[in-house]
Amino acid sequence: MRADAPTSSAAEASAPRKRRGRFRKYLPAYLFLLPNGVGFVAFMLVPLAVSLGLAFTDWQMLRPEVRFVGFGNFVRLIGFSWTEDGLAANDPDFWYFLFNTLFLMLGVPLSMFASLGLALLVNHRLPGITVFRTLFYLPTICNGIAVLMLWRLMFHADVGMINQALSAVGITGPDWLQSTAWAKPALIIVAVWIAAGGNNMIIYLAGLQNIPPELYEAAEIDGAGKWASFRNVTWPQLAPSTFFIFTMGIIGGFQGGFNAAYIMTQGGPAGSTTTISYYIYNTAYDGQLLMGYGCAIAWVLFLLVMAVTLVNWRFGKGSALGDG
């Protein structure tokens, strides 16, 4: 594409004319960008600016007046105050829901290792192996409200399949989704069930198939067994995939948990499955419709995600993401 390189440096055009000429030269590019640009401005940039503004107000949906409150929302959200009982969070709910979010993120490493295990299994050259790959991918295809409703039934205390299976081996299962102790593990099990055989398995599978066979041959010559060659060849060679899967999992984890909690537990019992994204929904769209405060929570969530992304950039440059 050298065709549109500067051609007429000799031409002595006046400045505005030159600018118009340049604009005409770049016009095709601008036209190609236009549809996306319009959407980007209307549905991303403008809302982003409005959101930042709202985060510093006490706006409620049904109240006409809006007051500027400075950093008031943020102080209320993440600040601490001295009370008679000592130092206490201004919004204890937020810290509890952040804890819930982090707890549910235990599912990230769990499903990552499950994906690796499945990838190792389906990487064998055996007849019919693609059938298994397809079956493992099914939950990812079905992911969404329908599957979450199914799991609501699966975890039902009396008629659910999980407790039936447990009672078959002589264990009386808990009332999973009604118990503050068991609701979170139940949600993690669902998350692992959905994600294990999905995109992450395929990323690992591609990683496995890109490992040069010479490395295994060299390991074999050095007398390495199965486990030693996994530890010294497979695992380090998969590091970029692992890094990518883990970071994306963490970033997704901070923002996640809404759909599962909404369908399976309504954030309960006693708020024990309410995540940050669910808290934003409750604050902004349910009950008091605290739009300003909801925006403030969303911006704190953004900062958390950005911190993870920056760590990712700092340590992961040039590994899994290539030039992207």
Binding site: V50, Q255, C295, A298, L301, V305
Partner: peptide
């Protein structure tokens, strides 16, 4: 700059979008 906006959680723009 454009692809960097991928990391903005949708929750951030959702309230203003709803309002607008």
């Amino acid at each position: 700059a454009y692809i960097a906006t991928m990391m903005i959680p949708s929750a951030v723009t959702m309230v203003p979008l709803f309002m607008i």
